[in-house]
Nucleic acid binder design. Structure first.
Length: 425
RNA sequence: GUGGGUGUAGUUCAAUUGGCAGAGCACCGGAUUGUGGUUCCGGGCGUUGUGGGUUCGAGUCCCAUCUCCCACCCCA
């Protein structure tokens, strides 16, 4: 074993690849049902696109980005998240001129240089959707509904939705000041991390796991009390829409999203069964981002989620996704003279859409039937001396054992009709 | 980036105080020449993650390194 896969990456092999296909297919279907169209962007972009959008002080930029320079010294980064590239493409291609509301969704790999852990990888796969062009709270609720529909359709049940509002930049700033003022007198009692957070990101103090910090934070002021009237109303309307859509949620004023560009609504979908890495998706509104990266002042709201944790959740809850593909029939060629005819028929029947299995290295009759059985083929199509002599082939139902001879031309129709019959019961 | 655990056949796991590296499952073949599943029989020299060291002798002890796992951190 000479080469090894890079740390924090993984191959998706059968039978897992089937599960991935199924989940991705359901994502495409759900997003399209909600009026979203697919966008695919490159997996690398100018590094400063992410630096500018995520925020210089974010962990993504500070330590998790895969950066590199190309032969001409230009600085690129493997994308650590999906929103910035979509927004870049939106502005670059003037999509705002084409329609007032633009709904886009994507699927693809993201890259973050993190220490790998269960449910956390260096190359991981995300789905996401962005609704660009309106500040209306309906769209916040709608995109949450999209993500809810997706998770429900997969069969996940033990998922909770927590929402919060981080307000507009103005009330957000007020709140940070209030937090700093609140924690400052306790500086000496805080853990080391929290002391540095106090100056850089006071909000992070709220979800520190050190018990002593938690005790202090318990009495900290709530973001919700610092929302101005407009922000308060927006948040109330989002909640109203969610209730009308019958989407269960709890308000958690401590939700902090990792990236700087979020405004107003922020939310997370959590699966408590997952352990430390329990966020399976989330999103929020980012009204300032498009202007920030050089576009017009256009509001937007988006979601994203990771497939790894989705699949982990499905496994924990024992939800089957897709059964293994089985061949319609296994071709048994019983004598050397049958081989040429058999291979011609194999090709012909495949053109007609049948899933056929055949192994040229198995000569004995018994071995071929055994193989048919282990592949769970529904039928064996047998061609040997007898069949050649009579100008027919034998079709054996491997479930019931019944067997009949028919002309070769009848096989596709026969297998198809028998299969249809099967679905009638 | 920090701390703790882990690694033996394709896979799941054994191997006593350091003493010949094994089993289940899976896989392949066979059990009178054209009929599968059950059953029975046969089939394993694997750089014990990698590289060093101690020892007459290392899967086992020591050091380094890598991987994965758990937690911190962060998030998907």
């Amino acid at each position: 074993m000479q080469y090894k896969i890079p740390r924090g990456t993984f191959d998706i092999l059968p039978p897992d690849s089937r599960r991935w296909q199924a989940v991705i297919r359901i994502w495409h279907e759900t997003a399209q049902q909600f009026g979203y169209e697919e966008i695919t962007t490159p997996i690398f972009e100018q590094a400063d696109l992410f630096e500018r959008s995520s925020g210089e002080s974010s962990d993504i930029v500070q330590k998790e980005m895969y950066r590199f320079t190309d032969k001409k010294g230009r600085c690129f980064a493997l994308r650590p998240e999906g929103t910035a590239p979509v927004v870049r493409s939106y502005t670059e291609n003037n999509l705002d001129r084409q329609s007032r509301i633009t709904r886009l969704y994507y699927v693809g790999p993201m890259f973050r240089y993190d220490r790998p852990q269960a449910g956390r990888y260096r190359q991981f796969y995300q789905y996401g959707a962005e609704c660009i062009g309106s500040h209306h709270p309906f769209y916040d609720a709608e995109i949450i509904a999209l993500q809810t529909a997706f998770l429900n359709r997969l069969g996940l049940r033990n998922i909770s939705l927590e929402i919060n509002s981080v307000g507009c930049p103005a009330c957000s700033k007020d709140y940070d000041r209030a937090l700093t003022a609140f924690f400052e007198p306790h500086r000496e009692e805080l853990c080391e991390d929290c002391r540095s957070r106090l100056t850089s990101k006071p909000r992070r103090l709220l979800d520190c796991k050190v018990p002593s910090c938690r005790a202090i934070a318990a009495a900290a002021p709530s973001m919700l009390d610092y929302l101005d009237d407009a922000c308060k109303e927006h948040f109330a309307l989002v909640q109203g829409y969610l209730r009308e859509m019958e989407i269960a949620f709890t308000v958690n004023p401590r939700i902090v999203r990792g990236l700087d560009y979020y405004t107003h609504t922020a939310f997370e979908f959590l699966n408590p069964a997952l352990g430390a890495q329990n966020a399976i998706g989330g999103g929020g509104r980012y009204d300032g981002l498009i202007m920030q990266i050089g576009g017009r002042d256009i509001p937007a709201v988006g979601i994203a989620g990771g497939f790894e944790r989705l699949l982990l959740s499905l496994e924990i809850e024992n939800i089957p996704l897709q059964t293994a593909p089985v061949p319609d029939a296994y071709l048994v060629l019983a004598c050397p003279q049958a081989k040429s005819l058999g291979i011609r028929l194999l090709a012909q029947w495949r053109k007609q859409g049948l899933a056929l299995a055949y192994d040229p290295e198995k000569d004995s009759f018994k071995a071929q039937l055994k193989a048919a059985d282990s592949l769970k083929a529904r039928y064996a199509v047998i061609i040997g001396e007898d069949e050649i002599a009579s100008g027919t082939v034998s079709v054996k139902n491997l479930g019931t054992g019944e067997q009949q001879s028919v002309p070769a031309e009848a096989v596709p129709q026969l297998l198809r009709s028998k299969e249809e019959k099967k679905y009638l019961f």
